[in-house]
Amino acid sequence: HMTFVALYDYVASGETDLSFKKGERLQIVNNTEGDWWLAHSLTTGRTGYISSNYVAPSD
């Protein structure tokens, strides 16, 4: 899985979204569905959809 880092804080707007904080590391589970990616937070252990605009590759 690809690992990304959050560029900004994000508060989930629905049950399927994932809230995260700036600097949080996220593993991308599925990024084939446009701008919203299914991600797993390595910080909180939660999984949900994130906006690809809010993250950048961590490598």
Results as ranks from 00 to 15, higher is better:
residue 19 S to A: 06
residue 7 L to D: 02
residue 16 T to Y: 15
residue 5 V to D: 03
residue 15 E to D: 13
residue 29 V to N: 05
residue 15 E to A: 12
residue 57 P to H: 09
residue 57 P to K: 10
residue 34 G to S: 09
residue 59 D to Y: 11
residue 12 A to T: 04
residue 17 D to T: 08
residue 29 V to L: 15
residue 13 S to L: 12
residue 57 P to Y: 10
residue 49 Y to I: 05
residue 8 Y to W: 10
residue 24 E to F: 06
residue 36 W to D: 04
residue 43 T to N: 09
residue 8 Y to I: 13
residue 40 H to R: 14
residue 9 D to W: 06
residue 58 S to W: 15
residue 24 E to W: 13
residue 59 D to Q: 12
residue 45 G to S: 03
residue 23 G to K: 00
residue 27 Q to C: 15
residue 49 Y to A: 02
residue 42 L to V: 07
residue 16 T to G: 14
residue 18 L to W: 03
residue 57 P to R: 08
residue 3 T to D: 07
residue 11 V to K: 08
residue 5 V to N: 02
residue 12 A to L: 02
residue 58 S to R: 06
residue 45 G to I: 02
residue 30 N to I: 10
residue 16 T to S: 13
residue 39 A to P: 00
residue 30 N to S: 14
residue 20 F to G: 00
residue 41 S to M: 01
residue 26 L to Y: 02
residue 49 Y to L: 08
residue 24 E to C: 04
residue 13 S to P: 07
residue 53 N to M: 14
residue 27 Q to K: 09
residue 42 L to Q: 06
residue 48 G to N: 00
residue 9 D to A: 04
residue 14 G to I: 13
residue 40 H to F: 13
residue 16 T to D: 12
residue 13 S to Y: 09
residue 55 V to A: 05
residue 57 P to V: 11
residue 2 M to T: 11
residue 27 Q to P: 01
residue 1 H to Y: 13
residue 48 G to S: 01
residue 44 T to L: 01
residue 16 T to K: 14
residue 6 A to H: 00
residue 30 N to G: 15
residue 23 G to Y: 03
residue 29 V to T: 06
residue 11 V to W: 09
residue 54 Y to E: 03
residue 33 E to A: 11
residue 43 T to W: 07
residue 19 S to D: 07
residue 39 A to W: 03
residue 56 A to T: 13
residue 6 A to K: 00
residue 9 D to H: 04
residue 41 S to D: 03
residue 45 G to P: 00
residue 53 N to A: 15
residue 26 L to E: 00
residue 46 R to H: 09
residue 31 N to L: 11
residue 33 E to K: 11
residue 23 G to N: 04
residue 47 T to M: 08
residue 44 T to R: 00
residue 38 L to T: 02
residue 23 G to V: 02
residue 35 D to P: 08
residue 36 W to I: 14
residue 49 Y to M: 09
residue 52 S to L: 10
residue 10 Y to A: 04
residue 8 Y to G: 06
residue 45 G to W: 02
residue 54 Y to D: 08
residue 17 D to S: 08
residue 15 E to T: 12
residue 41 S to I: 02
residue 4 F to Q: 01
residue 23 G to M: 02
residue 11 V to Q: 11
residue 11 V to C: 12
residue 26 L to C: 03
residue 2 M to N: 10
residue 24 E to H: 03
residue 18 L to K: 01
residue 39 A to N: 01
residue 28 I to R: 05
residue 3 T to M: 13
residue 35 D to V: 09
residue 15 E to N: 10
residue 47 T to L: 07
residue 10 Y to W: 06
residue 12 A to C: 05
residue 34 G to P: 12
residue 55 V to Y: 05
residue 15 E to P: 14
residue 35 D to I: 10
residue 26 L to G: 04
residue 33 E to S: 12
residue 44 T to I: 05
residue 6 A to V: 11
residue 6 A to T: 11
residue 52 S to D: 03
residue 23 G to T: 01
residue 25 R to A: 09
residue 17 D to N: 10
residue 3 T to K: 04
residue 54 Y to C: 15
residue 14 G to A: 14
residue 13 S to V: 14
residue 17 D to C: 14
residue 45 G to V: 02
residue 41 S to N: 13
residue 59 D to H: 13
residue 57 P to W: 11
residue 30 N to T: 10
residue 24 E to Y: 03
residue 25 R to D: 05
residue 10 Y to E: 06
residue 54 Y to T: 06
residue 49 Y to C: 10
residue 39 A to M: 13
residue 42 L to T: 06
residue 38 L to P: 01
residue 29 V to M: 12
residue 3 T to Q: 10
residue 45 G to C: 06
residue 33 E to Y: 11
residue 43 T to Y: 06
residue 24 E to A: 03
residue 4 F to T: 03
residue 17 D to P: 01
residue 27 Q to V: 15
residue 49 Y to N: 03
residue 40 H to I: 15
residue 44 T to P: 00
residue 47 T to P: 02
residue 4 F to Y: 15
residue 46 R to E: 09
residue 40 H to C: 12
residue 58 S to L: 15
residue 31 N to P: 10
residue 15 E to G: 08
residue 38 L to R: 02
residue 34 G to V: 08
residue 49 Y to R: 05
residue 51 S to M: 15
residue 19 S to Y: 04
residue 58 S to A: 15
residue 3 T to S: 07
residue 46 R to N: 09
residue 4 F to I: 04
residue 28 I to H: 01
residue 48 G to V: 01
residue 55 V to K: 02
residue 9 D to N: 06
residue 33 E to P: 06
residue 31 N to D: 10
residue 29 V to C: 13
residue 39 A to H: 00
residue 21 K to A: 09
residue 24 E to I: 05
residue 14 G to C: 15
residue 46 R to Q: 12
residue 5 V to C: 05
residue 50 I to R: 00
residue 58 S to E: 15
residue 44 T to W: 03
residue 39 A to C: 04
residue 15 E to R: 08
residue 10 Y to S: 05
residue 54 Y to W: 09
residue 55 V to M: 06
residue 34 G to E: 08
residue 32 T to R: 10
residue 50 I to F: 01
residue 39 A to Y: 04
residue 33 E to M: 13
residue 46 R to M: 13
residue 38 L to W: 09
residue 23 G to P: 03
residue 38 L to D: 13
residue 23 G to F: 04
residue 55 V to I: 09
residue 8 Y to H: 08
residue 46 R to I: 07
residue 55 V to W: 06
residue 42 L to G: 02
residue 58 S to K: 07
residue 1 H to Q: 12
residue 27 Q to D: 07
residue 42 L to R: 02
residue 35 D to F: 10
residue 30 N to K: 09
residue 29 V to F: 09
residue 25 R to N: 08
residue 21 K to T: 09
residue 9 D to M: 08
residue 1 H to D: 11
residue 33 E to G: 12
residue 55 V to Q: 02
residue 4 F to P: 00
residue 42 L to K: 04
residue 53 N to H: 14
residue 3 T to G: 05
residue 17 D to R: 12
residue 11 V to R: 07
residue 8 Y to Q: 09
residue 40 H to L: 15
residue 41 S to K: 00
residue 37 W to M: 06
residue 10 Y to I: 06
residue 45 G to F: 05
residue 10 Y to R: 05
residue 58 S to D: 15
residue 28 I to S: 04
residue 30 N to L: 09
residue 2 M to P: 12
residue 55 V to S: 02
residue 5 V to E: 06
residue 28 I to W: 02
residue 55 V to E: 03
residue 13 S to D: 09
residue 21 K to C: 14
residue 41 S to Q: 04
residue 13 S to A: 11
residue 35 D to R: 08
residue 57 P to C: 08
residue 1 H to L: 13
residue 10 Y to Q: 02
residue 28 I to V: 11
residue 13 S to W: 08
residue 6 A to S: 05
residue 5 V to S: 03
residue 21 K to Q: 11
residue 30 N to M: 10
residue 35 D to L: 09
residue 22 K to Q: 09
residue 22 K to D: 02
residue 29 V to G: 04
residue 46 R to D: 07
residue 30 N to R: 08
residue 54 Y to F: 12
residue 21 K to L: 09
residue 2 M to K: 12
residue 37 W to H: 02
residue 44 T to C: 03
residue 35 D to M: 10
residue 37 W to R: 02
residue 23 G to R: 00
residue 12 A to M: 04
residue 20 F to W: 01
residue 56 A to R: 10
